[in-house]
Design a protein around this nucleic acid. Structure first.
Lengths: 205, 205
DNA sequence: AGGCAAATTTGCGCCGCCTGCAAAATTTCT
DNA sequence: AGAAATTTTGCAGGCGGCGCAAATTTGCCT
């Protein structure tokens, strides 16, 4: 449905990426997505304003385009892993396999993180996408654990795991960066596995 | 700052509640907040449109007004409990102490939940408020656990706990309702305490 | 009671977001 | 090249949300 070698699909994806990049660039230079208008974004990317809204329903969605693609990839990966791994490990490894640190520049990631952090509308948008991810993944987890999608347990598992991924990733980003992201995620999951009540063995971290 | 016996404050709170109630009423009857305009809400509450936006920045915020108040109460309660209880118990008991089932009609809560569930803008708004709650609570948790606000551990604890409260509450709402909400929350927390990896003793739930 | 100061309500104008619709331009296929 | 399908674009319109200043209301004090 998406990545057919169709020349058409490629151009669409290209302009979508261009739009997203333009949004990011402008948001950075103008210090906040709030002071960037849809017209400016369209101009920066060399298309009409109407076309911009043809690709993205909002500038927030435009800025979070890669995030969206990443979560989609995570979802596809999780679907595969759930067939052969215990669900907890599957989610963890799917999170690790995203390899954010290889796909993106570290500085850019921090930059993006800060943009999101101090823009209420972006926080909402990102949270909304997380909820969408949750909704789509819950079926996978339910099936893998032999429970119903309406049961409490799969929701607790998935919720905890996603929170863990998000939290550890953010924490890793704000860190002077000695460990790899994979190590950070692994440690976060380990803490939850052992029961969250007691601090981990290395309390200062 | 808020609940002084000042007659003025009372009237403000009253109109705010009226506005919120009007929003809820209209959203229910028109089957979706999306098809309710700010003008209608203002008219329903007997004030001008401008005044409505004077109280709430958006109709979503208006609909989630009680939710907001609830989280504020939770925060205040947590601050107190954190002084004397282990942090995990403090968060759990603060969540239980909200007594949503006593404050609100069950049918109304389900109704509200459904309104939120199939309105992307409401999901975003609610998620955003959760993030705000997280941000405000992280300091409390960090202090209580003797860690820094930038550390990973307090964020994992708080994140897990909040997810647990939200998840169990939603699950409890969709349930034929035999247990109390307090029991549901308690069980959810117990699952996380024991380590999330293995299903709880009663697997069907 | 009456009036004064402060706060609230309201109207107005403005900008920006977002969508539907139909015409124009571009691309793909034959 | 010509036709068909698709994308881009402009236009119009509705709605959301905010600043500002005038008008109204409220609380308080003499």
């Amino acid at each position: 449905m998406a990545d057919q070698t169709g020349l058409r699909e490629r151009k669409k994806a290209a302009t979508k990426a261009a739009l997203s990049a333009a949004t990011f660039r402008l948001a950075v230079t103008k210090k906040g997505l709030g002071s960037v208008t849809a017209d400016e974004i369209a101009a920066e990317a060399g298309v009409s304003t109407r076309t911009f809204h043809n690709y993205f329903p909002s500038k927030e969605a435009a800025l979070l385009h890669d995030f969206n693609e990443t979560t989609n990839a995570l979802l596809a990966d999780l679907r595969e892993r759930a067939k052969t791994q215990p669900i907890w490990d599957a989610i963890r490894d799917a999170g690790i396999a995203m390899h954010l640190d290889e796909k993106f520049d570290l500085e850019m990631m921090r930059c993006r993180e800060q943009l999101i952090h101090d823009s209420p509308s972006l926080i909402k948008e990102q949270s909304g996408q997380f909820m969408a991810l949750f909704t789509e993944a819950i079926g996978i987890v339910a099936e893998a654990t032999g429970t119903a999608v309406t049961d409490l347990y799969p929701r607790l598992v998935l919720g905890s795991a996603l929170v863990c991924i998000k939290t550890t990733t953010e924490h890793w980003l704000s860190e002077p960066g000695e460990r790899t992201l994979a190590e950070a995620i692994t440690e976060g999951f380990a803490v939850l596995e052992h029961g969250i009540t007691k601090p981990p063995s290395a309390p200062g971290n």
